[in-house]
């Protein structure tokens, strides 16, 4: 039993972001991604996750713009694929967004939450594709998504209640004697604001941890095959076991990809709904 049997850096390269796509030799092998010079000393190194995000965004546009052309007349769509997409949209709107925010206030947030769900879902599913990866397994991605959600939550609350009232309503009404309230209210204000921020940080960590951990476990199980290649009596058993476990975990990961996109959207809708009303 030796940890050096498995190359951790090799396992990590398949899970984390990198500046190249590592394909089999017959598909081109190692494909380095370009570094784009912006201005002066600034340049942007294109990474695997950037490409996957861009592909996900283009795929969403390619799929939902034609769907919009079919739906905007108000007539029902025809075809299994379009109906499946519509089921997703209607489920999110009627079962997640409307109950969380309230039908009256939710309408401006529906396109944002739909975009959020499908973008996260496609980024999650990127990890299920061979030689790709899951951008949501990176903190930079999940943190930005949570940050945008935070901006929408605060912005929505300020638009709904008024900028001053929104921050004022962070402190609930309390029957506290005057001198005590001078100390208590700023503290409660700080707790509420930090608490709100923490909720969004947790939102990003939850998605990151679920996606990263799932793919690491998958990679580890597959790495056992190469790790035991030198032990002839053990290698066949490990290979069969690893492939079986990888298959089972892939099914679980597929479910987790949908579940985490749903949870992120559901919590975002809940936070937006909470910001619409004062304490």
């Amino acid at each position: 039993m030796n940890g050096e049997l498995i190359d951790v850096a090799e396992v990590g390269a398949h899970v984390s972001d990198s500046d190249s796509f590592h394909l089999p030799e017959f598909l081109g092998g190692h494909i380095e991604l370009p570094c784009i010079h912006i201005c002066g000393d600034y340049s942007l190194q294109i990474t695997k996750f950037m490409v996957i995000e861009l592909a996900a965004a283009l795929l969403l546009i390619a799929v939902f713009v034609p769907l919009a052309c079919k739906i905007k007349s108000g007539k029902p769509v025809r075809g299994r694929f379009w109906n499946l997409l519509e089921v997703f949209l209607l489920y999110l709107r009627d079962r997640v967004i409307y109950p969380s925010i309230g039908e009256k206030n939710a309408k401006p947030y529906v396109p944002f939450l739909w975009t959020l769900f499908f973008f996260i879902l496609l980024c999650n599913l990127g990890g299920m594709l061979p030689w790709c990866g899951s951008p949501t397994g990176s903190l930079a991605v999940t943190a930005v998504l949570a940050f945008i959600t935070y901006l929408v939550v605060i912005g929505g609350g300020m638009i709904r209640q008024g900028a001053f009232k929104y921050w004022l309503h962070q402190v609930p009404k309390m029957d506290v004697p005057g001198p005590l309230s001078i100390f208590l209210k700023p503290m409660i204000f700080a707790i509420e604001v930090i608490g709100n921020l923490i909720k969004h940080v947790v939102l990003s960590i939850r998605l990151l941890a679920n996606m990263f951990a799932g793919h690491v476990v998958l990679a580890v199980f597959l790495a056992f095959i190469s790790g035991t290649a030198g032990i002839l009596w053990l290698w066949p058993f490990v290979t069969v076991g690893s492939l079986g476990m990888s298959l089972a975990l892939s099914c679980l990961e597929l479910f987790v990809a949908f579940l985490q996109a749903y949870i992120f959207t559901f919590l975002a809708a809940l936070f937006i709904g909470m910001a619409q009303h004062q304490h």
Partner: peptide
């Protein structure tokens, strides 16, 4: 893009 060309019209169409 999706708000303008996809989800906005879809929401209205629905």
């Amino acid at each position: 893009v999706l708000w303008k060309f996809a989800f906005g019209p879809i929401a209205k169409g629905l």
